[in-house]
């Protein structure tokens, strides 16, 4: 194909997206679109899978049977969401095993928030309330993104995730209405998870490399800073209902902007964790790689068995 032809195709492609048409896997697409989508969708999938670990840490220790089944169902959903997203990514011509390889080798990134440890039961509440809350803000606009398989996966994810945040908030509510010790546990969890949750919405707009292109392809509808502001504005009143204090002395209502002003985020910490030096990066990878390696003989056995069965069937036909 000549350079001009490709340019025409690209122009037509961008026009389709601008008209809100969906792109499907077999459609022609610019290589950059394919690569960007593989990167973003797989990062999203990896985040779901790694995200199972911090909460999985409390399944065996959940304080009641009701909490145990709710947490199990939630962590299981994350596996399901990872699966939907890997499937969407696979339509772009890459296999799940290749995507795992990227994760395990450290080449692919996942959401840094999962590199913090879950140290008390209240962390289950804080994660559901804050981390899922921030995730929802990120994800809802993606239900309308331009790549069909990603948009469809996100519709399913968003529908299923609606209970996740409520599950977390209910845990917090119970703690805050409990004994002083329980309330203290809730406050401590908020203190530890607040800032990482704000960072989760991504670097500030002037630092973010992907925003403009992503906006055009509807991988993003709002900038990181807009999303962060939205998250803060909706979360502060929820903290008030709990009677908890947001750990930011600079947080105050700005009458003029009709929004909260907030303090400086520690971006050095953010980049440290992104670069692999958070408290749990190594543990998380060890757990993922370990599960994959321990499962190898099982996956091989299932394939070997399937082939034997197929051979037997073929023989019967002959």
């Amino acid at each position: 194909m000549s350079g001009d032809q490709i340019k025409n195709l690209e122009a037509e492609f961008e026009a389709r997206i601008a008209r809100d048409e969906k792109i499907e896997p077999k459609d022609w697409m610019p290589e950059k679109y394919r690569q960007t989508h593989i990167r973003q969708i797989s990062q999203h999938a990896h985040s779901e899978i790694v995200g199972m670990l911090p909460e999985g840490n409390w399944i065996t220790r959940a304080p009641s049977l009701r909490r145990k089944v709710a947490l199990l169902a939630k962590v299981q959903d994350e596996a399901g969401h990872g699966l939907y997203l890997y499937s969407a990514c696979e339509t772009l011509g890459i296999t799940r095993d290749e995507l795992y390889e990227q994760l395990h080798s450290g080449k692919a990134k996942y959401s840094s928030i999962f590199n913090y440890p879950t140290v008390t039961w209240a962390d289950m509440g804080a994660i559901g309330w804050l981390v899922d809350g921030a995730a929802i803000i990120n994800q809802v606009p993606l239900c309308n993104t331009s790549f069909g398989p990603y948009a469809r996966a996100m519709v399913r994810v968003c529908k299923e995730e609606s209970f996740h945040q409520r599950q977390g908030y209910e845990i917090m509510l119970k703690l805050c209405n409990g004994t002083p010790e329980q309330k203290e546990m809730a406050q401590d969890a908020l203190n530890r998870w607040w800032w990482p949750s704000l960072m989760m919405l991504g670097p500030t707009d002037d630092m973010s490399v992907h925003t403009e292109q992503s906006m055009k392809w509807k991988l993003k509808r709002k900038t990181n800073d807009e999303l962060r502001q939205q998250f803060i504005d909706q979360t502060v009143p929820q903290a008030d209902i709990l009677g908890l204090t947001i750990p930011d002395p600079d947080l105050k209502w700005n009458e003029e902007r009709q929004s909260y002003d907030f303090g400086e985020i520690n971006w050095d910490e953010f980049w440290q964790v992104v670069k692999g030096h958070g408290p749990m990066n190594k543990e998380r990878m060890k757990a993922r790689v370990g599960a994959w390696e321990r499962g190898e003989w099982v996956r091989d056995a299932a394939m070997a068995h399937a082939e034997k069965q197929q051979e037997r069937k073929n023989k019967q036909v002959v």
Partner: peptide, 22 residues
């Protein structure tokens, strides 16, 4: 949607577990 499985039986079981949990 889609999923991975070694054989048809497993694909059915996995589909049940993944796509009909609700």
């Amino acid at each position: 949607g889609s999923l991975h499985a070694a054989d048809a039986e497993m694909a059915l079981e996995n589909a049940r577990d993944v796509y009909t949990r609700r």
